[in-house]
């Protein structure tokens, strides 16, 4: 190998090593920038109020959010912190083909969460940024909060035997990242942000679509902080319609029961 070739390869090697270091350097730079505002996981980000807007016009029902959440938060098989529920909607005596509504569901991180006052141990609480979380080292697994949630957003995690729910991926938000479901949404239907900041994307979206903003069960007096754009008022309250064929499976996936 001649000298110039050897010099060229050597330079290439140093360039590639340098390239490999770039992300590391970036991560450290981010950390340095963030470190003065570090906050505890239970206190949350003081001054902020997290909320989510889900633009149903952009949701294609691909369940990428469901999968991303499951990968990120590792709930047991068959249990979900978020899902996209799918409905067929048609007009009575209508000849036009039915429309489909995809309804992403997750914890509403309500302003007045009914799950918190019922908790007999204080294991579930609201952070200063509005995110409702569970301290699963203190939770006794009584299931009272699961009963009290009007949205079926909570469940008893079969692995930890404690209450579990969507946390808006608080651990990711605290690290300056987006929740897994928001990050992965192909239609960018899910937008999370600070409701206290009038210039945030979520505040702008809420202002722009003021007349088309709905929440689930507005009469339940829970003040949800997950808002939907493009949702028919027929979906605001409990669905009055035809149930799907439901199947009950064993832990190994074997069908033991089904019904309509």
């Amino acid at each position: 190998m001649d000298k110039s070739k050897r010099q060229f390869l050597g330079k290439m090697a140093s360039v590639s090593v340098g390239a490999a270091l770039i992300p590391v350097v970036q991560v450290y730079a981010q950390d340095d920038k963030r470190s003065p505002q570090m906050h505890s996981a239970s206190e949350g980000q003081v001054g902020k109020r997290y909320g989510m807007v889900i633009d149903l016009r952009r949701c294609v029902g691909c369940q990428a959010c469901t999968v991303a959440c499951t990968i990120e938060n590792q709930p047991p098989l068959g249990q979900f912190r978020t899902t996209v529920q799918q409905y067929e909607v048609s007009q009575q005596e209508d000849t036009t083909p039915p429309a489909f509504l995809m309804l992403p569901r997750l914890c509403n991180h309500c302003e007045k969460p009914p799950c918190i006052p019922v908790c007999p141990t204080g294991a579930t609480f609201q952070r200063k940024d509005g995110i409702v979380v569970v301290n699963n080292e203190w939770c006794v697994g009584c299931g009272y909060c699961v009963q009290a949630c009007p949205y079926d957003a909570r469940f008893i995690n079969h692995d930890t035997n404690t209450a579990d729910k969507c946390t808006f991926c608080a651990h990711r938000l605290d690290a300056g990242l987006l929740p897994a479901c928001v990050e992965t949404c192909v239609g960018e239907a899910r937008v999370i942000g600070d409701l206290n900041d009038p210039n945030s994307q979520i505040s702008q979206l809420l202002a722009t679509n003021k007349t088309d903003i709905k929440v689930l069960k507005p009469t339940a007096n829970t003040a949800p902080r997950v808002f939907y754009i493009g949702m028919s008022s027929a979906f605001e309250h409990r669905i009055s319609g035809q149930a799907p064929v439901r199947t009950l499976l064993t832990d190994t996936g074997e069908e033991i029961h089904h019904g309509h």
């Binding site: 899902t83 529920q85 799918q86 409905y87 669905i239 009055s240 799907p244």
Partner: peptide, 8 residues
């Protein structure tokens, strides 16, 4: 309006 649950 007729609503059928497809996937819940």
């Amino acid at each position: 309006m007729v609503i059928k649950e497809i996937f819940t």
